[in-house]
Design a protein around this nucleic acid. Structure first.
Lengths: 257, 257
DNA sequence: TACTGTGAACATGTTCACAGCC
DNA sequence: GGCTGTGAACATGTTCACAGTA
């Protein structure tokens, strides 16, 4: 079959669901651990447990990649590691730059999980001239002026932004202008980018807020009653005074001034 | 209405969709920014743009909280800030502990986004005795032996784990035993916890892998053809030799030994 | 026998488009 | 007129349950 990508199930062709893609790294991590322990074969049940998902989901996920298992036996660990790595594009080398070398940038530079997955930290970049030359994780920090040159010289297509929020959009613009097409953003800002550029964000405080939401639910589960556990005085609604129909926990019918 | 939570739309009662909950912090951040600029009112369109979502989604999300807008006008900024904060449980104070004070732990301790959202770092904990007493972000690091005491003395219900992977499960078990019921895990491991305990994970390398997946797609978009851009030699499949039907990018029909 | 692979049922999430209201 | 709020249509994701097979 030399005519490239022509066969394929034809039904969903080249569309691995996003939800599945997001779990592949999880499976890969679990498989890598098994591989290191020289486990030759694993069942969907075992692997699912190791990855923290249920086995039906795992099998469904794998079915999008192809039929890589053996009925009655399970999956060949090494083989699956290879297939998932290839699917994720980890059989090639991805040079990345990290911009903004504070505590977080340093943590990222030191993070072992990158190197072991085909990601190579091509450069660390910071706007503070005092940092230039200082090695972090064995890599000397370069000044932001060099950004464009670094990106093009190294063929960097993935950039990591760990600057303060205020600098993020500008850094992003420069990365994109220099040729970066994927950005991992740790700064708590919405980045705007042209079409064709992917952004993923990781916001440390958002995750905590989601936990707080659920935590609050647990507390109020059956101890309910308390409609005014609030301690902060609710602000007054601007205009209209009537007609709100928010669920419970609502403010008093006429809001305090 | 002293009889607590009795009214409510009755249809979906107390179920804000997870996807909506996950976006509330985003809206809150955008609203806070508007509030700081003393903007009194905002339309779904404007706010959606600021939060990086589309306006239909935003309106739908808000509709789960109640009818907090004014037709023809928009939403009152201060009022919405309050409502969302309350919904997320941020009108109360959440003491958190951070366990594992490496670069990442330090980054978290320094992160301004916590304090400003009702999260108070009650303690920093590390297993390294040499760190004990050293202040990080103005808070002295305490030894891991103190973990249980710290958690119960401070009524901590949310714990953050930023230890190496190997230590995470043990730390998790101790946190849970001490009374923590929500955990934010930065260690690249699957944590197992009893029912009733929430875990959210943030994995720095997983996000990069997802980007790599999409990046790979972009590259191969129309330059397709190359069925063997692979450079790493594919491992041999254990047993059976025939009958795989993976989509394109498959290995040669008979795998090389 | 013990497993995978997968249709079909179900659940959740998103978008559309417009009625309702200020 | 210009906005919100929301049913209804659609899209995506998850789970079930079992046929197929090494």
């Amino acid at each position: 079959m030399a005519t490239g990508r022509t066969h394929r199930p034809a039904t969903r062709s080249r569309g691995i669901p996003e939800a599945t893609v997001a779990r592949l790294p999880l499976y890969l991590r679990a498989l890598t651990a098994l591989s290191e322990r020289s486990v030759p074969t694993v069942s969907s049940e075992e692997l699912a447990a190791a990855a923290g998902v249920n086995s039906a989901k795992l099998r469904k996920d794998f079915s999008y990649l192809g039929s890589y298992g053996t009925r009655g036996v399970g999956y060949d660990v090494e083989y699956l590691v290879y297939q998932i790595s290839r699917e994720l594009g980890l059989t090639q080398d991805w040079p990345v730059v990290i911009v903004g070398i504070g505590n977080l940038g340093a943590a990222l530079a030191n993070y072992g999980g990158f190197a072991s997955r085909g990601f190579r930290v091509a450069a660390l970049i910071d706007a503070d001239p005092a940092m230039a030359g200082t090695p972090v994780a064995g890599i000397p920090v370069q000044h932001a002026d060099e950004l464009e040159k670094i990106v093009s010289d190294n063929g960097v297509s993935i950039g990591v932004i760990s600057t303060p929020a205020g600098a993020a959009q500008q850094v992003c613009d420069r990365l994109v202008a220099a040729g970066v097409t994927s950005i991992l953003n740790f700064a708590p800002t919405v980045l705007s980018v042209p079409d064709g550029v992917d952004v993923r964000k990781v916001d440390l405080s958002i995750e905590l807020q989601i936990l707080a939401f659920h935590e609050q639910r647990k507390a109020g589960e059956e101890a309910a009653a308390g409609d005014d556990v609030d301690q902060a005085a609710p602000p007054v609604r601007a205009a209209a005074s009537s007609s709100r129909k928010g669920p419970d926990g609502d403010m008093p019918a006429v809001m305090p001034a």
